[in-house]
Simulated assay, not measured.
Amino acid sequence: MQRYPMTVEGELALQAELKELKSVKRPEVIAAIAEAREHGDLKENAEYHAAREQQGFIEGRIADIEGKLSASQVINVHDIPNTGKVIFGTTVTLLNTETDQGVTYKIVGDDEANVKVNKISVNSPIARALIGKEEGDVVNVKTPGGTVEYEIELVEHK
């Protein structure tokens, strides 16, 4: 079975979501289905059909999270000696050499990636170009808009 890398924070977030779904959302939807059944004819009962659809979504998400957690390989960056190189879980500050704009990214697993909070997937083009590099290295990243050159300013194990 293939293992998928995940940070400790990503695992905790998935476990919290799973707990919420199992202990809060699932009982709520079961109660909603029971209440809708009391209203009579199920064929034309919109509340019943909406609750059943919600139940299907919740059960699917529970199965999805359980599958992700069972196939994950949790990597704690603090357990890895700091070599100064970019690895999974490190936070990297980059400088675009053309525009002199800086950006900071944390390299995380696919399910944790969220560009809005500067978390990029280890499988993204930027992360793949950065892995194994050190502070001061210049990296060329192929993007849909062309090749962008970045200088690695800072590598942090946080």
Rank of each mutant, 00 (worst) to 15 (best):
Gln73Ile: 08
Leu14Ser: 01
Val29Asp: 03
Ser124Asp: 07
Glu35Asp: 11
Leu21Ala: 12
Ala63Gln: 13
Ser124Gly: 02
Ala71Met: 06
Glu134Gly: 01
His39Met: 01
Ala13Pro: 03
Val108Thr: 04
Ala71Lys: 14
Asp110Gly: 12
Asp137Trp: 00
Tyr150Thr: 03
Asp111Ser: 15
Asn76Gln: 10
Tyr150Trp: 04
Ala13Asp: 14
His78Val: 02
Val115Tyr: 13
Ala36Gln: 02
Leu95Lys: 13
Phe57Asp: 09
Arg61Tyr: 13
Glu134Asp: 03
Gln15Asn: 11
Ser124Phe: 00
Asp110Gln: 05
Gly56Glu: 08
Gly56Tyr: 05
Ala32Cys: 00
Phe57Tyr: 10
Thr147Val: 15
Met1Lys: 13
Pro5Ile: 13
Ala51Arg: 12
Gln15Tyr: 06
Glu135Cys: 04
Glu20Ser: 08
Tyr4Ala: 14
Gly40Met: 02
Glu53His: 10
Asn118His: 03
Glu134Lys: 00
Arg52Cys: 09
Glu153Val: 13
Ala31Cys: 02
Glu134Ala: 02
Ile152Gln: 06
Glu17Ala: 12
Ile107Pro: 04
Arg3Ile: 15
Lys25Gln: 14
Arg61Leu: 14
Glu66Pro: 11
Val92Glu: 12
Pro5Leu: 14
Ala113Cys: 15
Ala46Lys: 01
Asn123Ser: 09
Ala36Gly: 04
Ala50Lys: 04
Phe57Ala: 08
Thr143Cys: 09
Ala16Lys: 11
Glu47Ile: 00
Ala129Cys: 03
Glu66Ser: 07
Ser23Tyr: 12
Ala63Phe: 12
Glu28Pro: 08
Thr93Glu: 15
Val108Trp: 03
Asp79Gly: 01
Asn82Tyr: 15
Val8Cys: 06
Glu135Leu: 00
Ala113Arg: 10
Lys85Gly: 01
Asp111Cys: 04
Pro125Val: 00
Gly109Asp: 07
Ala34Thr: 13
Tyr150Lys: 10
Val138Glu: 11
Ala129Leu: 00
Thr91Gln: 10
Glu156Leu: 08
Glu38Ile: 00
Ile107Met: 03
Arg52Val: 14
Thr99Pro: 01
Asn76Arg: 07
Phe57Glu: 14
Lys116Gln: 09
Asn123Lys: 04
